[in-house]
Design a protein around this nucleic acid. Structure first.
Length: 262
DNA sequence: ATGCCCAGAACCTCTGGA
């Protein structure tokens, strides 16, 4: 089974690109982030015509996550239990969707950006990650053989080498110690980040800013990851970061990350 | 060429992204 995650940066702007990519890569399950549309606006018919079941979670123009599957799509959850909200009257955002696809519990995750260290969104980001790792630990404690994949845009660069120039990010989000600790908590809970296990090389990025020739100069960030339970990690035969998908007009600023499961 | 921000909403300039 081929399982992939992709921050698409608007599914409506990239519908054709996504359909062509699914056809080319023969991906069975695709977790999407930043669909940037409501459930009603999601172009679901086109993906259904291509043979995929579609589950979406979109509340407006911001965020938005979805799962496409041609190997079954059951027991959809539109947030994880205990998912924090943002605001004075906390509102849960469209940042997590879970579904069972081909025997795997897939979570498509769009971790809050954080904006700046002194911004309320930063504490929200830490709370969000800590709540998710606590919940994920429970899933594994309840079933040591669980097949769970937590995939998406984590908005954390765990290593200094995960950004093209760490000096540029000094004092900002994505590289701070609390963010990195919140990311590592998933490993402490027993999950395995399988993309780095299979692709340990430096300068192997998943995101490049649209500005300042970042992609041609390979000045990017590695912020899209896949934490899996040990039972699922053992099935991962290979990982691909589809760098070519960043090329050309109309690309997302993130590329797909593919897991091939045996 | 891998090429010098993009998307959405609103209404032209703003917010958010990272």
């Amino acid at each position: 089974m081929r399982l992939a995650t992709w921050n698409i940066n608007s599914i409506r702007a990239r519908e054709d690109r996504a359909l062509a990519w699914l056809e080319r890569t023969q991906t069975d399950v695709l977790a999407l982030q930043e669909t940037k549309c409501t459930d009603e606006q999601f172009p679901r018919a086109a993906f259904e015509a291509a043979g995929y079941q579609v589950a979406t979670c979109g509340f407006g123009q911001w965020n938005g996550v979805a799962i496409l599957s041609r190997v079954g799509l059951d027991d959809v959850e539109l947030s994880f239990p205990g998912q924090p909200g943002f605001g004075e009257v906390p509102a849960v955002e469209a940042r997590a969707i879970g579904a069972s696809c081909g025997g795997v519990r897939v979570w498509s995750l769009y971790v809050p950006h954080g904006r700046a260290i002194d911004d309320p969104h930063y504490l929200y980001k830490l709370d969000w990650l800590q709540s998710l790792s606590t919940e994920a630990a429970r899933w594994l404690a309840a079933d040591a053989t669980a097949q769970v994949a937590l995939v998406g845009d984590w908005n954390v660069a765990p290593l200094d080498t995960d950004v093209w120039d760490v000096a540029v990010f000094e004092g900002g989000t994505h590289v701070s110690a609390p963010e990195r600790a919140s990311f590592k908590a998933f490993a402490d809970a027993g999950y395995v980040e399988v993309t780095r296990r299979h692709l340990p090389d430096e300068r192997r990025y998943t995101y490049w800013d649209y500005q300042q020739l970042r992609f041609p100069k390979n000045e990017g960030m590695r912020i899209d990851f896949a934490y899996t339970t040990p039972a699922l990690a053992a099935r991962v035969a290979g990982v691909t970061i589809d760098r070519d998908e960043r090329k050309g007009k109309g690309a997302s600023d993130h590329v797909p990350v593919i897991l091939d499961l045996g």
